[in-house]
């Protein structure tokens, strides 16, 4: 009973950290609502280190994700005939939106949160690798394109993440 309560408490703390960091990544990207790619970046920063481990086991360099996200935007624009580097606009600093007690995410970010809620019974505790598994199971969108541009096979990444989660649960 106490264990279950402690796990729920820890999971709530992890979700809070995850949302705050995802939001910070979105704001740095001049977007007001975090998407799946921002949740993935946030998961790689969680102290449990399981997201980074899942990446490494799938042959991906975790620190390459941010530049891969930029790269896929650049490649997408060049596929239209626009010059490479056109996205390199000067960064306008973005203030955090006034807190209104409601966390809002973009559609892909909402998908991540909904999947987390749906699978919460399996999270004891919630780990970065759970987020990686969820995002890796989304075949389309910015995160999927960025991961593919890193040479990552999405199924491999999902399986690695699920394995890491299982191992951590047993430990």
């Amino acid at each position: 009973m106490l264990n279950s309560f402690m796990t729920k408490f820890r999971n709530a703390q992890t979700i809070k950290t995850l949302c705050e960091r995802a939001e910070a990544h979105a704001l740095r990207d001049q977007q007001q609502e975090p998407g799946a790619e921002h949740f993935l970046l946030a998961a790689l920063e969680l102290e449990d280190d399981t997201a980074r481990l899942a990446f490494s086991r799938a042959g991906a360099i975790p620190d390459g994700l941010h530049s891969a996200i930029e790269q896929q935007y650049s490649e997408a624009l060049s596929s239209l005939g626009l010059p490479i580097g056109v996205t390199d606009r000067p960064t306008v600093s973005v203030a955090s939106p006034a807190p209104n007690g409601v966390f809002s995410a973009s559609v892909s970010g909402q998908d991540v949160m909904q999947e987390l809620a749906k699978t919460r019974a399996r999270h004891s505790p919630l780990l970065g690798s759970h987020i990686v598994a969820i995002v890796a199971s989304m075949p389309h969108g910015v995160a999927a394109r960025a991961l593919r541009s890193m040479g990552v096979d999405l199924d491999d990444l999902r399986l690695s993440a699920e394995a890491v989660s299982r191992e951590r649960k047993r430990a």
């Binding site: 896929q72 935007y73 997408a76 596929s79 239209l80 910015v142």
Partner: peptide, 23 residues
């Protein structure tokens, strides 16, 4: 402007254009 025939590529270009417009 050449819109890619591959839907994945074309839709990725739309997302990138929107983001560029936002910036």
């Amino acid at each position: 402007l050449s819109v890619p025939k591959d839907p994945e590529q074309a839709l990725a270009a739309v997302v990138a254009l929107r983001r560029l417009a936002d910036k």
